[in-house]
Design a protein around this nucleic acid. Structure first.
Lengths: 346, 346
DNA sequence: ACCGATTCGGAATAGGCTTTCCCTCTAGGC
DNA sequence: GCCTAGAGGGAAAGCCTATTCCGAATCGGT
């Protein structure tokens, strides 16, 4: 059977012909321009469009009016609840503005991120939102800045999520202060000896949280023994592995394990459980992010809340705001320590 | 300060001029057409492009060659791990094919789904993948079919996920059989009296799972008392609420609560725990989907595994396969009962 | 009844790119 | 050395829509 030739989608031209009007009139009828068109004609055009199942070609529209209505969102891993919650906020806010969201996933790879941004530029999105995986690795960093600058130079808006210090609009999550507050709260709960599970050395988020936590402890004269700081991937499995590694070094005197994010904390809890260690009886655990499932694990996870959906929403709002034209606006979102059963007072 | 006029992005034209070659040559150099271009010229073009920070305009390309390279993905709720895992699979597979993914969220609203599909058509995506929220509500259903048919009629590929019976390519998850197998397995574990938490009546997925579960029990002469089937939203909070409602009716003799999906099951577990009921000591729980966190809650959740990421991958593969041209191909994915601590043998 | 001011349909153009078609130039065959 | 073929650059057509510019028709005022 020969590949049956698909009819091409109806074009505005087809609609105009079908309705017996000019292209201009058809266009004006269908997307209510400044110019009015006689209601008679309008109806005819609308009817013709319906009859032909017409759907406007966004690409053509984009090219004709020189701007698209898409928001490009870059995340590390959409299956990670941290990112999917932010994405949910971005999508909701974008749709409310009549914008379409395109999404790309870096798989936590800076190189890939650069490629993606480069490719995404081709879409001529109104806004590009980058979240996660910012690293201090300066090589890709520089190239990324170049690329983003080229984008903003041509009118694009860039918003970074949770990555301070770059010359772009940013929704800032105060990882440092949040972690410090958490440390204080945990000390107040009676904890004294800590271990930490952290992400790759180059990950800014991971660094900030660890630094904040350490500084918070330092206020009380407490330090984390270097052997008790274990690196792992920034994922559930990374947390599981890191906790396992930590176990190997002996955890007898440790009161509480702080994981720099919730998914790691949850992985760690599973690892501890499998090793026959009771949480929080033997060791308490705390995370960061307050992802949805943090309250559903047992014991419920002590963490630092970030209003993730809101972060997404704010990112869109920031991108669209007039003040953001300058490109170095910062919006801060508040974090909040949430004490739950995984770190009872002792 | 006057809004500084942004320079327009460099066009292919600019690149050609900068390189001192024709438009055609520039185009050919940059995206390797069938025609070869002298390496000398090529280099000149590439250099010019780099110098100008050129990025091809996808809209223009799309319009010029009459086809885009985007995949449109429609999900109910991206923050739900079921959908985000599928999305991860879709995105990975799409990116491997050089396709861009655009995503839209229905918020579980059929009307919204229809609107979105209508809008998405305007993107002229190569592929449209719809997942979730299929309902038997025939009104929107008919309109949706019309819209999708118009799309396929013009060469677009449609793939439905987990929604049999519609005249489109489908990745079929055998909800019915999976649930039946689960019921059998649970009876084998020694459970005899069941309650169920289910989604909206019109949700096909929910219906199929409940029916399969009921039929599985029926094989052993067991029926679920109608009062013990509670409807709730297809979400964590829905599960929490439904379980709370169930508690009000008294659960003394119930051995196990089956929730038609994992997020509901996890919500239910939290509700039971808050009510002071021990899981699985007092009541066992089982879910469906095997989302990542199912293994991390305590007790780990008994469920039916669906290879979610793979489902997404398969959807893309199916859409791109030649055999899918007919538009009613079905790919089945296997489900697998996973017994965990939430339903120990008794 | 006539003139200027609106209103509104239509033709034409623009917008960035791909691709066909034409034509020149070079290499190879005899 | 001449002719043919093939390689490859360039001009131009075309993809689909929005919009500007024109001109015709209508309306109101006097």
């Amino acid at each position: 059977m020969p590949a049956l030739p698909h009819a091409a989608p109806a074009t505005l031209h087809d609609v105009a012909r079908e309705a017996g009007v000019s292209l201009a009139t058809a266009s004006r009828s269908l997307n209510g321009s400044a110019r009015k068109v006689n209601d008679d004609y309008r109806q005819r055009v609308l009817a013709a469009a319906a009859r032909l199942n017409y759907s406007p070609n966004f690409s053509a529209q984009a090219i004709a009016k020189g701007s698209t209505s898409t928001v490009a969102l870059v995340v590390s891993d959409i299956a990670d609840p941290y990112f999917s919650s932010i994405a949910a906020g971005v999508i909701r806010a974008a749709e409310a503005e009549g914008l379409i969201v395109t999404m790309a996933v870096t798989e936590r790879n800076p190189e890939r991120e650069l490629e993606l941004v480069r490719a995404l530029r081709g879409q001529r999105p109104r806004v590009m939102i980058l979240t996660g995986s910012r690293s201090v690795d300066s090589e890709h960093q520089a190239a990324l800045i170049t690329e983003l600058t080229a984008f903003t130079a041509t009118g694009g808006r860039v918003v970074l999520i949770s990555q301070e210090g770059l010359p772009f609009n940013t929704v800032v999550v105060d990882n440092y202060l949040g972690a410090r507050a958490l440390a204080n709260a945990l000390v107040a709960q009676g904890y004294r000896t800590f271990a930490a599970l952290t992400g790759a050395e180059t990950l800014v988020t991971s660094r900030d949280r660890l630094a904040g936590f350490a500084d918070g402890l330092a206020e009380h004269g407490i330090a984390i023994h270097p052997d008790r700081v274990v690196r792992g991937e920034f994922t559930r499995d990374g947390g599981f592995a890191a906790a396992t590694e930590l176990l190997a070094t002996g955890l007898e005197q440790v009161d509480l394990v702080f994981a720099v994010n919730d998914v790691m904390a949850i992985g760690a809890m599973s690892a501890l459980r499998e090793a026959g260690i009771d949480v929080p009886g033997d060791i308490a655990v705390a995370g960061f992010d307050d992802i949805d499932t943090a309250r559903d694990v047992t014991p419920a996870l002590t963490t630092v809340n970030i209003p993730l959906t809101d972060v997404g929403r704010q990112a869109v709002a920031l991108a669209l705001s007039d003040t953001a034209r300058t490109g170095d606006e910062a919006v801060r979102v508040a974090t909040r320590v949430i004490l739950r059963a995984s770190s009872p007072a002792r």
